[in-house]
Design a protein around this nucleic acid. Sequence first.
DNA 1: TTGTAAGCGTTATCAG
DNA 2: CTGATAACGCTTACAA
Lengths: 332, 332
Amino acid sequence: MASLADISRRAGTSVATASRVLNGSTHPVSEATRARVLQAAADLGYQPSALAQALVTRSSRIIGVIVNDIVDPYFAEIARGVEDVAGRMGYLVMVCNADHRVEAEIEYVRALRDYHADGLVFAGSGAPAAGPVNDDLAQQVETARSRGARVVALARREFPAMHVGVDNAAAAFDVTDYLISLGHRRIAFVEGPPELFTSAERRSGFAAAMAAAGLGDELRFAGGFDFEAGLAAGRRLLTCRPLPDAVVAANDEAAIGVLTAFRHADVSVPDDVSVAGIDDTRPARFVELTTVNLPLYDLGAVAARHILADEDEPDVVLAHRLVPRRTTARRR
Amino acid sequence: MASLADISRRAGTSVATASRVLNGSTHPVSEATRARVLQAAADLGYQPSALAQALVTRSSRIIGVIVNDIVDPYFAEIARGVEDVAGRMGYLVMVCNADHRVEAEIEYVRALRDYHADGLVFAGSGAPAAGPVNDDLAQQVETARSRGARVVALARREFPAMHVGVDNAAAAFDVTDYLISLGHRRIAFVEGPPELFTSAERRSGFAAAMAAAGLGDELRFAGGFDFEAGLAAGRRLLTCRPLPDAVVAANDEAAIGVLTAFRHADVSVPDDVSVAGIDDTRPARFVELTTVNLPLYDLGAVAARHILADEDEPDVVLAHRLVPRRTTARRR
DNA sequence: TTGTAAGCGTTATCAG
DNA sequence: CTGATAACGCTTACAA
């Protein structure tokens, strides 16, 4: 690969001059030399070394998006939002799959920092549990910030960051309230992963809605944020007699798992039981699931704008919206 | 951030020695100095600059996975496969969403090359159309290879690369054949994006199965690889009188779109029409779609192994498997 | 307008 | 066993 030195040699200039014309510096360069440099660069197929550039400028035009689970469409839509606005500005966005492991998150933060990434987006929720790993993470994030990286979190996190999020408790409240308005009384809740802030927030929204209607929230089932967890919870739910009137799951994937368990057991949805989720990811549309739409794409887009902004932006919470579909009906 | 120079100063050694103990070189260093360096590094919280390391070693332990559409679960599962095996070896995998734009692919290849990525995985299919963009891409890939990057493609591509893939034509043949064995005769095919090799391969597999049974393959509908395209195709399909006995879609997402169109029109699946897809992504399980399982995760895992291998590996094609579920039934 | 030279933080070669 | 020192490829004062 041709380097700046090669170019300058061929153009008969110094590397400094070559650099000036090739990187769009404002430093004045005569038309004649400029032309020679450009020509030489074209002849040799010059491509600047991003590595060297980043090393000296301390900035790499890379934005890292760290997600908990790359197969979860929730994160995919966020990533696309980041990508769309950052990509337009010539930034490169790379998504990193931490697979729910804080250690992996730490590794990615470290790598992103070492490559002088300009921004870090934490798409997933953190765990409340204080522990050595969480401290490590916080420290890595801190050094990344001290090196100039701008970091934004899309869910609650235990380290300083700009926040762009949604009101998870309100979202859960709203679906639950909708179910209640449909006449349901015995409503079950399939919980998210116990260690995540987001799970706790959604659970409390559910409990609040039930309490507001004078109903109990004792019908709670351990679950998770994936299909399999929902399936398992659904099966346990089926052993409950009488069956609940309705169930709200902590997210769409789990809700779809519940739906599947019910279908296997020939329990009709929504005739026998209503089912709802939270997120409004693509699969929710596939199965016509009642859910609450979270502006996932926008979450990513706004996060990207925060990173590209010149100074720190205030926290923002984006609006959610109930989306009634075919898995819920008035109680018979 | 502390640099090697800082460490060596504090430990009272040269940078060379500090580098030797800190990067696990085999060069001998006395226990005493080693300890001093380690201590200094610990005191200062030393973190090597990956940028500088990559600049001089010409290798960065980064593997890039370039996908066509990050919201497509097809790619998510592949990415996870790569991640699992490469991550275990201390490599960092970053997934890049080209969003079906060759220009974006080029940008990513360029960036990955500029950062001296050790490997590139092209997860998506390419377009047969020869054109200036494709040439550009081929050229960028070539320079990446010349810089030592190992590249593997998971679908047909117009540039030299190791290949690990599946037999798309055979997969399409197999579902179609299954439908025929169920007694269906008028079978419709919802095509993939017209510009992709993979689409063409699947279409030809469908045509071959139909021909082998002495049936015509004239019931073909323009489609795509996403839900919306399937939905649209499904709606057009509904205007067809009489309705076909069955439809095979070019992938699961499209099949689910067809399913949804049918549900909206109160056409019962599989009673009135059987529907099948290809891929066996997660949503297919959610809706109990008959499909053909492609070893997506393994595709990624094998690709990663090819990249980590010392020398070029022979092309491999992984086995697929028909997965009958509830969206297909014997013809009434 | 152009060039020189000092970094950026490593690794690697060669002497000592 | 240890240390100078020259790369790696670029940007940017500072001088000319």
